[in-house]
């Protein structure tokens, strides 16, 4: 138990040391720190009017939702198919419940336009 703890502590210490070494070396290689004009985006000599914190639409979002919905289904279905014969009706009901919950996600993705190909 103690040896496992020591091993963990050693790895943590080594990782901290390596990170610190990287930071120090990077600062030495980079020279001086950045100035205020260097911290703004490159716009070809112009100043930004608004801050870069802005929200924009992740347009692949409904597609991702759909992908995750079907992937989770398959991840559960493979082990379920293995134990289905042993478990019988109980497994069938469990899968029914799972698919019902999942279909809510799919219906939501449908409403969001995930099936509307553009």
């Amino acid at each position: 138990m103690l040896s496992a703890f020591l091993a963990g502590l050693t790895v943590t210490a080594a990782a901290t040391l390596a990170t610190a070494a990287c930071v120090v070396l990077a600062r030495r290689a980079a020279g001086a720190m950045s100035t205020a004009p260097q911290r703004v985006p490159v716009l070809g000599g112009s100043q930004p009017e608004t801050h870069a914190w802005s929200r924009f639409h992740v347009r692949y979002y409904p597609m991702t939702l759909l992908f995750i919905a079907f992937e989770m289904e398959m991840m559960f279905m493979y082990p379920w198919a293995v134990v289905y014969v042993e478990e019988g009706l109980k497994a069938l009901v469990e899968m029914g419940m799972f698919l019902a919950i999942l279909s809510v996600g799919v219906v939501y993705a449908w409403r969001e336009g995930a099936f509307r190909w553009q």
């Binding site: 716009l43 000599g45 112009s46 009017e49 608004t50 801050h51």
Partner: peptide, 29 residues
């Protein structure tokens, strides 16, 4: 934040109201 105003929302092409970023690009881009 950081001395610059936040981008404010405007209507997007699909009916969502999302942030509009005002930028001046150039003259040396």
């Amino acid at each position: 934040p950081y001395g610059r105003p936040m981008a404010m929302t405007g209507d997007d092409r699909d009916g969502l109201a999302l942030d509009q970023l005002h930028l001046t690009l150039g003259p040396f881009l």
